[in-house]
Design a protein around this nucleic acid. Structure first.
Length: 289
DNA sequence: GCCCAGGCACTCA
DNA sequence: TGAGTGCCTGGG
């Protein structure tokens, strides 16, 4: 049996893993998931004392995974502050308790959201998985579940590992017109014309511009990468669902602002990313009547 | 079997 | 600067 570690903070795993911010977690049963993160197969379970991770030791947790799960970032207080703004956010707060915004690997997040455009979630999952099988490293599950032990898992391939992948090869796998976007992202990151490390030091606006140098990356995809990959808490990706929510709930308020962007920054108090996830998740799951 | 999805790029006014 | 349209594909 591999080592495990329990962090004394509870998060709602289903709300966190099944809200469209990540695509490599799989449900084993209630409050129990398995996924590939930072090059290893990780099992996560909600337990009475908090959140149990396996395999994990305290040092690895502190250096890598604490950040990934967004632990220790006053999530509840921030959600509560948003809930105080209006009834729509209050409803979302009650439904989304324990929803966390993950801080995933920027490269993986970038490619994942390039693949997300014009796609359903199950298909996004399938494409991400295909890419992992294509060039990722095979790794194995180290827990106690006998079925999972038999399975092969794959890391998400680095830009170097994808350097020899052609548009043609990706098209054959069903990537469609997004194939050339993935190839372009690999080229620009490897050549240094897009510097993924530098992005975290930029302002939201500058960071967006940098990411949008890549073909197939527009404002929506860039904002997803900045929020889910870099932790820009003020990033506010607007997809069809969030667009519906804004029009349905905030049309009047928005008119008082010079732009939608200005409204979002002011109204959600710099915590647009969290507000966006709450509204998206609540609306998409039919909790607004 | 058809429809359409957590968009983007390109064109044209 | 904004609206309109084509794009790959397979899950629902």
């Amino acid at each position: 049996m591999s080592e495990h570690y329990v962090y004394p903070e509870w998060i709602h795993l289903a709300h966190t893993f099944e809200n469209g911010q990540c695509f490599r977690w799989r449900k084993i049963d209630e409050d129990h998931y398995v996924g590939v993160v930072h090059g290893q197969v990780l099992e996560v379970k909600s337990v009475p004392e908090g959140t149990q991770l396996q395999p994990m030791n305290e040092q690895t947790f502190q250096t890598t995974y604490k950040r990934y799960f967004g632990f220790g970032e006053n999530l509840r207080q921030r959600q509560e502050a948003l809930a105080g703004r209006d009834d729509h956010l209050r409803v979302a707060f009650e439904y989304c308790e324990g929803l966390t915004i993950l801080r995933q690997d920027p490269w993986e997040t970038l490619v994942t959201f390039i693949l997300s455009q014009n796609n359903h979630m199950p298909r996004i999952r399938s494409l991400v998985e295909k890419l992992a099988v294509l060039r990722g490293k095979e790794i194995h599950y180290l827990g106690e579940d006998d079925e999972l032990k038999e399975e092969a898992f794959y890391t998400f391939p680095s830009p170097q590992e994808l350097s020899d992948v052609s548009e043609e090869e990706l098209r054959t796998l069903g990537f469609g017109y997004r194939a050339k976007y993935v190839v372009d992202a690999v080229e620009k990151v490897l050549s240094g014309s897009v510097d993924l490390q530098r992005i975290e030091e930029l302002t939201l606006e500058e960071a967006r511009k940098e990411l949008m140098k890549i073909k197939g990356v527009g404002v929506k995809v860039a904002d997803c990468v900045l929020l889910f990959g870099y932790g820009f808490q003020e990033a506010f990706p607007v997809d069809v669902w969030v667009d519906r929510a804004l029009k349905r709930f905030y049309l009047q308020e928005m008119k008082a602002y010079s732009s939608r962007e200005a409204f979002v920054q002011e109204y959600f108090m710099g915590d647009g990313g969290l507000a966006q996830q709450m509204l998206f998740h609540t609306l998409r799951n039919g909790r607004y009547t």
